[in-house]
Simulated scan of single mutants.
Amino acid sequence: MKETAVKICGLQSVEVLKSMINLPVDYVGFVFARSKRQISSERAAELLPLLRAWSGGAAPRSVGVFLNPSMDELEDVLRAAPLDVVQLHGTEDPAFCRDVKARFGVQVMKAFSIKEDGSVHGRPDLTAYAGVLDGVLLDTYDPKYGGGSGHSFNWRAVNPYRDWTMTQGIPLFVAGGLHPGNVELLIETLQPDGVDVSSGVETGGVKDLAKITQFVERVKGR
């Protein structure tokens, strides 16, 4: 069975990131969208060098989370903090995603937010994104922030996206209410390429190394 990638999102602290360097984490996410985990480009620039010191395997790829950003906003952030991946969590259309890749030379991961009825916010036409994206992330829709609610969605909604990403040859990540207690079931049920967690490895709104370690061990089977 293929190994599932782990993405730990919402990192803000140098100390927490340093404490994670022995873990086999594949992606580290920094939130630039409006959120309680939002950081500045200057703060991200301080954190990025820590990824190069990783000892838990290959250095994690850096991911910036944005919600309907302007090109100017992306340019300002990427000039200060040269990220590997831009994750677009809003209603960005295929043309915008293509322009981001061409202009900044980054990979683009598009997040789609699943609503209570199983539909996707904005009802995007997946076929229009063919050949444009480097990955897809499914998360629970949050009317205030778009995603990152810490709540799960109906996992049955994943099936058409799993099929589509397979035909495109790109990874599918699943987020939304994941934590050490349910991530193994999700992987067994859906076989995603990757899982994404933020609040599920926090205590009192702060990243908890014990929970992060437990989450990673559950995913990686260590």
Rank of each mutant, 00 (worst) to 15 (best):
K2A: 13
E3D: 13
A5L: 13
K7E: 13
L11F: 01
V14K: 14
L17C: 07
I21E: 13
I21A: 15
N22D: 15
N22H: 13
L23Y: 04
L23A: 04
P24H: 07
P24F: 10
V25R: 02
Y27K: 03
F30L: 01
R37G: 00
R43I: 10
A44S: 11
L47K: 04
L48M: 14
P49L: 09
R52C: 15
A53G: 05
A58E: 14
A58Y: 08
A59Q: 03
A59K: 12
A59I: 05
P60C: 08
S62Q: 13
V63G: 03
V63N: 02
V65E: 00
V65C: 06
P69V: 06
S70P: 09
D72R: 08
L74P: 05
D76G: 04
V77N: 08
L78M: 15
D84N: 15
Q87H: 12
L88A: 07
L88F: 14
L88G: 03
E92A: 08
D93V: 03
P94E: 09
C97K: 05
D99N: 06
D99C: 11
A102V: 10
F104C: 06
Q107A: 15
V108E: 05
V108G: 04
V108C: 15
M109F: 15
K110Y: 12
S113M: 03
S113R: 02
H121V: 04
H121F: 13
H121K: 06
R123K: 14
R123D: 10
P124M: 05
L126I: 06
L126K: 04
L126D: 03
T127N: 05
A130G: 08
V132C: 11
L133R: 04
L133S: 11
D134I: 11
D134H: 15
D134S: 13
G135N: 03
V136Y: 05
D142H: 10
D142G: 06
D142Q: 07
D142C: 12
K144W: 13
G147L: 01
G148S: 12
S152D: 09
S152H: 08
F153L: 00
F153P: 00
W155R: 00
P160L: 07
D163G: 08
W164I: 12
W164G: 04
T165M: 07
T165I: 07
T165R: 05
M166Q: 15
M166S: 14
M166P: 02
T167E: 15
T167H: 08
Q168N: 11
I170A: 08
A175L: 01
G176Y: 02
L178E: 08
P180M: 13
G181C: 13
G181A: 15
G181T: 11
N182C: 15
I187P: 01
I187Y: 09
Q191Y: 14
P192W: 08
D193H: 10
S198A: 14
S199G: 01
G200V: 03
E202C: 01
T203L: 10
T203P: 02
T203F: 08
G204P: 06
K207G: 00
D208F: 12
L209R: 14
L209K: 05
A210I: 10
I212F: 13
T213L: 07
Q214K: 09
R218P: 02
V219D: 02
K220R: 06
K220D: 02
G221V: 06
